[in-house]
Computed example of a mutant assay.
Amino acid sequence: MIVITSASTSQVQSGTDSTAKKFQAKAPATQPFSAEAFASSNNTTIRWLGMAGFFINSHGTTFMIDPLMEGYDMPLLMDFPIKPKSVPHLDAVLATHSDNDHYSVETFHDLASVTKEFHSTIYVDSLMKNEGFHSFGHYIGDTFHFGKVTARLTLADHAWQNDFPKPGQRYYSPGDACGFWFNTPDGSIWAPGDSRFMQEQLHMPKPDAILFNYSEDAAFHSGLEGAVKIANAYPNTPIILSHWGFVDAPDFSPFNGDPKHLIDKVVNPERINVLAPGEPFILKRLKNKN
């Protein structure tokens, strides 16, 4: 696995030419993978799916977090590393919240026939049950198991809908969105999910990897300042970035984090992993978590 310490780009700074786009950091070229990635193994391999999604194979236990592999309603800069029809089997699929770039109903339907179980918050589970998925809902702090993996829901703050109320809209509570903490045979993985910065995020057990939904939008995500605080709270933990460099939307800040801004501000910046979609990362238990 190659650690890239700067983002590649295909767009330029806007100038007098009205057709030029604003600068937008772009992820490295997609590295497609196939059914072989789902086979039994002797380690835990993490792959970014693009968008906010991840695929993990831990000693043959396979699962996805927030997979979106088709059917999105905004233009994309990149190709997804695998199509749903190429996925042979999954022990679990997990959704952190109900936004369609995390809970992709189309993708979930296409994965349903090869997925043993779906997991999310109580609210998102109600949506999944309406779609006929074999799903389970959990409260923040709840723990559940699948295969060789234990998962726990962690707190997140992403109730952006309450700031833009529509007639008849439900009130979104803190427990409607979540992150996930995974314990695997090779160490722990924390996926905080989309969330405003929270002080609680600085006081987690030290994970062996963080799957970080990196956005410089501070209104409903961590923002750059919050991201730096979280990264520096766990100075030896590898951080794998997602939620950046994939959507063609230079004027829409939630998708436009630039890893170079983060790398310049964190302790031990070499642990910031700017992976290509589909590129494998092998999880290793940290020797020094101090």
Results as ranks from 00 to 15, higher is better:
L155I: 10
P238Y: 09
F144A: 06
Q201W: 02
T107P: 08
N273E: 00
E131A: 15
Q11A: 10
V3T: 13
L241T: 01
G50I: 06
S10L: 12
H138W: 08
K289V: 01
A276C: 10
D217W: 13
C178G: 03
K26L: 07
S34Y: 06
T62H: 02
P67N: 05
I239R: 12
Y72I: 05
S104K: 01
P167C: 10
H109Y: 05
Q11R: 15
K148A: 15
L76S: 03
S104Y: 00
Y72V: 03
P28N: 04
A95T: 11
F246I: 00
Y171M: 11
A35C: 04
L153P: 02
F63D: 00
H89N: 09
T30Y: 08
G175L: 02
N130D: 13
N273V: 15
M1N: 07
V105L: 08
M198L: 15
T154A: 14
K21Y: 00
T96A: 14
P165M: 11
M204T: 02
G223K: 02
F118C: 11
F146M: 10
S222K: 00
H221K: 10
A209G: 07
L241F: 04
L90Q: 05
E200S: 15
D73R: 10
F220E: 06
R170V: 07
M64G: 06
T107N: 07
I263T: 08
S222C: 13
N130C: 10
I4T: 12
K116P: 01
N42R: 01
T150N: 14
K129E: 07
Q31T: 11
D163L: 13
S120C: 12
P88E: 00
L111F: 10
K148S: 15
G278T: 01
G226P: 11
N256V: 02
E200Y: 04
P207A: 08
D258Y: 12
R285Q: 14
H59R: 15
G226A: 10
E117K: 15
